[in-house]
Computed example of a mutant assay.
Amino acid sequence: MSWDYVSGILILSGINLMTVLGLSLLTGFTGLFSFGHAGFMAIGAYMASSMTMKYGIPFFIALLIGGVSAMLVSLVIGKLTLNLKGDYFCIATLGFGEATRLILDNVQYFGGARGLSSIPTQGTTTLFNVIIINIVAVFVLVSIIRSRHGRNMVAIREEELAAQTIGIDVFKYKMMALAISALYAGISGGLLAHYLGYIQPIMFKMVKSTELTIIVIFGGLGSVSGSVIGTILLTFLPEILRSFYNWRLVIYGAAVILIMITRPQGLMGGKEFSIKSIIKSAKKFINFVRQRIGNKKEEVKS
C-alpha cells in the first residue's frame, strides 16, 4: 500500500470531516436531523470551481465564497423550514438536497448533467491544506460549543419547550446551527471539487447525505471527537475492504448496524478526548505494562 494511496484516503477523510463537523453541530448539539447536506456540498463545489476556473480567483478565497454561498442558501431554506417539527424538517432537507441536484442537472452554465471538468488541482486540495483547514474548523466548532451560544443549542436539543420558556430564541439558534453547518459543507464541496478535478450533480445524491449523517451517529451525537474518529474509520473501511469488491458495501453496512446495536450512543457517546484524559489513559497503560513486566520477573525468579 503506497503512501500516495494512503494520503488520498486521508484527504477524502478530511473532506468528509468538514461536512461531518457541521452536521455534528446541527444534529449532535442542536438536535436537528438533516438529509440534504449533499446539496450544500454541491453548491460549494460548483461555486468554488467556477471562481477558480472562470475568474481566476485564488483557491482559499474560492473555498470561502463556496462556503458563504451555501450558507446564504441555508438562511433561505431555514427561514422556510425551521418552524417545522420533528420528521418534517428532515423530509424538507431531503427535498432540498434532491432539488439542488436536479437544478444543477439542467443548468448549462455549470455543465448540466456532464458537470465541470478541468478544475485546477495543482497545489489546491493537498493533504497539508486539508489538515490545516480541519484543525481550524475543529477549533472554531469547539469554541462555539463551549460558548454561551453552544450551551443554548444543547439546551434546545435536550428540551426545546423548556429552552424557549427560559428566554432562549430557539429559531435564532436553529438558524445559526444550520448556517454554520452549511458553511462547513460548502467548503467541503469546494475541497472535493479541487481534489478530483471534476464534479457532476450525480455525485451529490441523497446517498451522500445519508452517509454523512450515519457517520455523525456512528461517532456519537454531541461529540466532536466521535465525529473525527467516525469519519476516519468509515472512510477507510470501504477502501480496506476493496479486495472484497462484491461484498465490501455489505460488510460496511453490517459494521454500522453492529455498532448501532451494541453501542447505540455511538463510539464516543457524547464524550470528548482531552489532553488530560489522553495523559491519564497513557499513565494507566504504562502502569499496566510495568505491572505485567513485574509479574513476569517474579515468575522467572520463582
Results as ranks from 00 to 15, higher is better:
Ile259Ala: 10
Ala255Gly: 07
Leu221Thr: 08
Ile65Asn: 01
Val76Thr: 09
Ile180Val: 14
Gly78Met: 06
Phe236Thr: 06
Ile217Cys: 10
Asn246Leu: 14
Gly56His: 07
Met53Leu: 13
Ser13Glu: 07
Ser277Cys: 00
Ile229Gly: 04
Ile251His: 07
Lys284Ile: 14
Arg114Lys: 12
Ala62Leu: 07
Gly167Asn: 04
Ser181Glu: 11
Met268Ala: 12
Ser143Ala: 13
Ile259Val: 15
Gly22Pro: 08
Val140Phe: 15
Ala163Asp: 06
Val130Trp: 10
Lys284Arg: 15
Ile119Pro: 09
Gly97Phe: 01
Leu25Glu: 11
Ala162Arg: 09
Gly39Tyr: 03
Glu211Gly: 00
Leu84Lys: 00
Leu32Gly: 08
Lys174Asp: 05
Ser147Ile: 08
Val142Asn: 02
Lys85Ile: 02
Ala162Cys: 11
Pro264Val: 09
Gln122Lys: 10
Ser34His: 02
Ile65Ala: 15
Lys301Arg: 14
Met175Leu: 14
Leu64Phe: 13
Gly28Trp: 03
Leu26Asn: 03
Leu183Phe: 14
Ile43Lys: 07
Gln122Phe: 15
Asn129Gln: 12
Asn152Pro: 00
Ile9Ser: 02
Tyr195Phe: 14
Thr121Ile: 11
Gly270His: 08
Glu211His: 04
Pro238Leu: 09
Leu116Glu: 03
Ala162Phe: 01
Ile131Ala: 12
Val138Cys: 08
Phe218Tyr: 13
Met1His: 06
Gly112Tyr: 02
Ala45Ser: 13
Leu17Val: 03
Phe29Ala: 00
Tyr5Lys: 12
Ala92Thr: 01
Ala179Val: 08
Arg248Gln: 04
Ile215Arg: 01
Ile257Cys: 13
Glu299Trp: 06
Ile132Glu: 01
Glu159Leu: 00
Ile278Leu: 15
Val170His: 12
Ser117Tyr: 10
Leu237Phe: 09
Ser49Val: 03
Ile131Pro: 03
Leu178Ile: 03
Ala185Leu: 10
Val289Met: 10
Val76Glu: 06
Ile135Lys: 11
Glu298Asp: 11
Ala70His: 10
Val73Arg: 04
Gly39Cys: 03
Val6Asn: 11
Lys296Pro: 00
Asn106His: 14
Tyr198Ser: 15
Val76Trp: 02
Lys54Ile: 05
Asn83Arg: 15
Gly150Pro: 10
Arg101Met: 07
Leu161Pro: 07
Ala182Cys: 01
Ile215His: 03
Arg148Ser: 12
Leu249Gly: 04
Thr165Glu: 12
Ile43Cys: 04
Asp4Arg: 04
Ala48Tyr: 01
